[in-house]
């Protein structure tokens, strides 16, 4: 799916012209970009949250040469799908406490960030929510 398909959906379902639909969808994503550029969060209920996170400088490695390189501190965008979207992806029933689940995940990510762990690295490297949660709560336990 690309922007063109989203525009098509707005054209068919909401009834704007193709040109209007294109401008509207463009405006929505431009608004997204401006908001995130300012460092503000975006929360779309039933879909997910977009949040800018500050990452500290760290030492990485060039995978080709094996040479160590410093990865500078930076701001990155992270996206967390809502519990509703995750359930839908898996054809599961929407959990009744979905807003609490989302809040708990946000809190775990904030805790991991505060403890010096990188929530995004965890997502990528562990690639498992359960494992991620386990390490986040482990980090919390260690900190206490």
């Amino acid at each position: 799916m690309t922007k063109a398909d989203i525009i098509e959906g707005v054209y068919e379902k909401v009834g704007f012209s193709k040109k209007e639909s294109a401008e509207i969808v463009e405006l929505v994503f431009d608004t997204f970009k401006e908001t995130l550029e300012r460092g503000d969060k975006i929360k779309i209920s039933g879909f997910g949250n977009f949040q800018v996170r500050q990452k500290k400088a760290r030492v990485g490695r060039n995978p080709q040469t094996g040479r160590e390189i410093e990865i500078s501190a930076r701001r990155v965008l992270t996206f967390r799908p809502s519990a509703v979207l995750k359930a839908a992806l898996n054809g599961e029933q929407i959990p009744e406490n979905h807003s609490e689940l989302d809040a708990a995940e946000d809190a775990a990510a904030d805790a991991a960030e505060a403890a010096g762990l990188d929530p995004e690295d965890l997502d990528e490297e562990l690639e498992e929510v359960e494992e991620y949660k386990a390490s986040a709560s482990g980090m919390k336990a260690k900190a206490e």
Binding site: M1, T2, K3, D5, I6, G9, V10, K13, V14, F16, I24, V25, V28, F29, I44, G46, F47, L85, A88, L89, G91
Partner: peptide
């Protein structure tokens, strides 16, 4: 209706297993 349509259509595509690319 517009905002709902945009995110619903994205959600539907993902549920079909489709990837979404927004340039």
């Amino acid at each position: 209706a517009t905002v709902e349509t945009i995110f619903e259509s994205m959600k539907d595509a993902l549920c079909r297993g489709e990837n979404i690319e927004i340039r």
